[in-house]
């Protein structure tokens, strides 16, 4: 039995209510976890001596707007001793886009969660320092949301040069 199947079995055995589904696509397994159980699931996967998923390789999010549940936070765990990846997905509705932090399990989640907060506006409850990490601190909005405007400006060509030139905010000395 391969390690991913064993991990799914152990998770199901210990916390059955917290795992509504297990998705497999092209040989990759993603375990769907309820938001309130994510820290416990990570702790279990990290501390079980048969699994030892001791490295959080990535933490990111997906915006499925306008579908519901709108967001999914994705946790990519890696077991260095067994050389196996495991993916956890936490679906979140747009009205309650918050999930408990896993900073206590994987300390490197700190900046990952800040990035997800910055780009998607998902709140990580219990995070020690939930500030923007990429955008300026006074930025309004979360750029990787699907309903965020791309902010294209009209391109200046010879035929519309003067019109754009008139309203362009040139800097002064």
């Amino acid at each position: 039995m391969d390690l991913v199947d064993r991990a799914v079995e152990i998770l199901r055995g210990k916390m059955k209510d917290a795992i509504p589904a297990v998705e497999t696509f092209r040989g990759e397994t993603a375990v769907v976890v309820r938001p309130e159980a994510i820290a416990e699931a990570c702790r279990l996967l990290r501390d079980d001596p048969r699994l030892r998923f001791d490295f959080l390789a990535a933490l990111t999010a997906v915006d499925y707007w306008p579908d519901e549940p709108r967001f999914a936070v994705v946790y990519e765990l890696y077991s260095i001793p067994h050389r196996v990846f495991l993916r956890l997905r936490v679906p979140l509705s747009s009205t309650a886009a918050e999930v408990p932090t896993i900073e206590g399990v994987y300390p490197n989640a700190n900046w990952h969660e800040r990035e997800v907060f910055d780009m998607f506006g998902i709140t990580f409850v219990g995070h020690s320092d939930l500030r923007r990490v990429l955008m300026p601190f006074d930025w309004v909005g979360h750029p990787l949301r699907k309903d965020y405007p791309l902010g294209y400006e009209e391109v200046q060509f010879s035929f519309n040069h003067e019109e754009i030139d008139r309203k362009k905010p040139y800097a002064q000395e």
């Binding site: 750029p143 965020y148 405007p149 791309l150 902010g151 294209y152 400006e153 391109v155 362009k168």
Partner: peptide, 8 residues
Amino acid sequence: NNYAIVQG
């Protein structure tokens, strides 16, 4: 041509 870069 996007939100993050100053257009000139």
